[in-house]
Amino acid sequence: MEDLIIRRKQENNVLTVFAEGRIDNQNSPQFSEEVKPYLNDVNKLVFDLEKLIYISSAGLRVLLDVFKCMTENAVTDLVIRKPTEIVFEALEVTGIADLYNIEN
């Protein structure tokens, strides 16, 4: 079984990224490659993390990278949707929860 499954959905200029499984140090580059090249012309980005059960610091780094990238493009509508408890804890502990709008 794949540890991590990433799907993307783009509607108009809204990109939604669904991450399922776990993001650890091994597959965080995959996570990055599945997201970062698709950020052009996006004016709203949503990470749907309902089925993500774990995110490591390397995964958090990707979220931070994406945040920096989007901020440079003056996009501020960044959403993390329905993070699981463990993931939310990680987001909150590292302060990344403050960078995104958390929707439950």
């Binding site: 931070l64 502990v93 590292t94 302060g95 990344i96 960078l99």
Partner: peptide
Amino acid sequence: KKSGLVVGGL
């Protein structure tokens, strides 16, 4: 206690 962002992040 609520923590700040990771150091070196922004």
